[in-house]
């Protein structure tokens, strides 16, 4: 008799990595994912640097936006593609090297066990992860947690943590309209609206000079809130 729920292999787990001008670090980020046997989907979001060339030597699924749209749009494209390819689990992973490939196994466990549809990474569940966060960034994130709570009605321990895992059925119900960084709040909103079961899972975010230089600023935060409010007016 055929097993109805065939075991999920690493190959069925599609790790979606949006990359915009990450030529410096993208290979380093992708190698551990490829070694672990995951199906890696890189969405080059119209990079103007050598990101595209660096990908040519890697065993990955390679997609390219001809123009730059933003991280949210790149993730949605990656999810559409992964679902077409028959992905069973989808993971959102940053290309700048701040997420750890080793965390994925733990992140997807709640979905494998059938306890959750979506798992959201959080850097504030374990003291050793929270300790990694620079003090100014920590303050910024605490405020963002409150703003997100107000805007989405869901209270998480972390905000704008791009490390997430979704079951295929959950991913097919998510439709990111926010092309920019506001997608991180939008996805929480949709999780609530679609009544998806979610849990948080501790992850380690590695802060380097590189990620800090590329990180989000206060000005970005203002833009995100504006995007979310305008979205309410113009559906």
């Amino acid at each position: 008799m055929k097993n109805v729920s065939a075991p999920v292999t690493a190959h069925d787990t599609f790790v979606i990595v949006p990359a915009f001008n990450e030529g410096e670090v993208v290979v380093q980020t992708l190698q551990p994912l490829i070694r672990a046997g995951f199906s890696v989907v890189v969405v080059d979001d119209g990079s103007a640097d050598a990101t595209g060339d660096k990908l040519s030597a890697l065993a990955v699924h390679c997609l390219r936006h001809p123009v730059n749209l933003g991280q949210g749009a790149a993730l949605q494209t990656g999810m559409d593609y992964a679902l077409q390819q028959g992905a069973k689990i989808l993971v959102h992973f940053d290309s700048d090297g701040q997420h750890q490939a080793g965390d994925i196994e733990r992140l997807i466990q709640p979905i494998l066990r059938g306890e959750a549809d979506v798992v959201l990474g959080s850097r504030f569940l374990r003291p050793q992860d929270a300790g990694q966060v620079p003090p100014t960034r920590r303050m910024f994130l605490k405020i963002a947690v409150w703003v997100n709570w107000l805007l989405t009605g869901v209270r998480l321990s972390d905000a704008h943590n791009g490390f997430r895992a979704l079951s295929a059925s959950a991913a097919s119900q998510i439709d990111l309209r926010e092309n920019g960084f506001a997608h991180a709040s939008e996805i929480v909103q949709q999780i609530r609206e679609r009544k998806l079961r979610w849990v948080e899972c501790p992850v380690t975010i590695r802060y380097t000079e590189y990620t800090r230089a590329k990180g989000q600023s206060w000005w970005n935060a203002f833009n995100i809130v504006m995007d979310l409010m305008l979205r309410r007016i113009f559906r």
């Binding site: 699924h61 390679c62 997609l63 936006h65 001809p66 749009a73 494209t77 559409d80 593609y81 077409q84």
Partner: peptide, 10 residues
């Protein structure tokens, strides 16, 4: 853009 990316995926 999404359609182009999906049809030219490698």
């Amino acid at each position: 853009t999404r359609v182009i990316a999906l049809t030219t995926a490698q």
